[in-house]
């Protein structure tokens, strides 16, 4: 999914030979599939239903399988069957969301990597300090930010049009874009995403699980909007939102959209 081009000849002024291997760290947005059952029939029904809403989006989409919601640790054969069901629904399981030693054992047996960041990312209220986090949840979003931000970072401001194929990521902060975001472009932030222009591409707020993050844009024409991993693709945008100033926020597991301002 990394869309940034890497011209092989980029550094050829210094060295004309292309590199044999280029090992680079890259951030890749990926979907997490949390299953509540290992019943492949039920899974397949549910998945094919979801996929039908946006077939192109899900085609060969890599997913990380999260077994954490299951009541007991499944057997290897059960997981194999689940992976097969996911594949038949058109998606590709490329790893297990992990943490526990049991998952490690399973992953070794299945020859799949453990993607450990996922569980942490989706666990926005770590159990380490329950006293501090408990009263936070019912408070308004602004208060949450004030309470949890230890050393708040100034928002990242980007003033040029984000073109198709470009990605902008604001780590640990909000992202403010004072121009448009083209179709096929991606803007991401650990905090909120504000776009003072037209949003035609993808906007992802709270990419590391911040549930209070929001997406704001001046002109809504988005392909996809995601907050803390919960996303919606727009094959058709609700008529009342097209081209309007819109904000998106999360209420529990539901992503809401509404016009903002007048």
């Amino acid at each position: 999914m990394s869309t940034d081009l890497d011209f092989r000849d980029k550094r050829s002024t210094a060295d004309a030979r292309p590199a044999v291997v280029k090992l680079q760290y890259g951030q890749i947005g990926m979907m997490q599939l949390r299953i509540g059952t290992t019943d492949t029939g039920a899974l397949l029904d549910e998945l094919t239903g979801r996929v039908a809403t946006a077939p192109k989006f899900f085609q060969r989409t890599p997913v990380c399988l999260d077994l954490g919601e299951l009541e007991r640790l499944p057997e290897i054969d059960e997981v194999r069957a689940v992976i097969d069901a996911v594949r038949r629904a058109g998606m590709v399981s490329i790893g297990l969301a992990g943490g526990s030693a049991d998952i490690e054992t399973l992953s070794t047996a299945l020859n799949l990597p453990v993607l450990s960041a996922f569980r942490a990312a989706n666990n926005p209220f770590p159990a380490v300090n329950p006293v501090a986090t408990a009263p936070v949840q019912p408070a308004p979003p602004v208060a949450v930010m004030a309470a949890t931000a230890e050393a708040p970072l100034a928002a990242m401001i980007h003033s040029q049009t984000v073109r198709s194929g470009q990605r902008i990521y604001a780590r640990d902060r909000d992202l403010v874009i004072t121009a448009g975001v083209g179709a096929g472009a991606e803007v991401m932030a650990d905090g909120c995403v504000h776009i003072y222009g037209s949003l035609r591409g993808r906007a992802m707020a709270g990419v590391h699980g911040k549930l209070s993050a929001r997406v704001f844009c001046q002109e809504f024409n988005a392909e996809l909007v995601s907050i803390a991993g919960i996303f919606r693709v727009f094959e058709t945008i609700p008529r009342e939102l097209v081209g309007k100033p819109v904000q998106a926020w999360l209420d529990g597991e539901d992503l809401h959209f509404a016009p903002v301002g007048n």
Partner: peptide, 12 residues
Amino acid sequence: RDSDRILGLLAS
């Protein structure tokens, strides 16, 4: 769409 992509490359 392709021109948008090219404009992105021109900027980077």
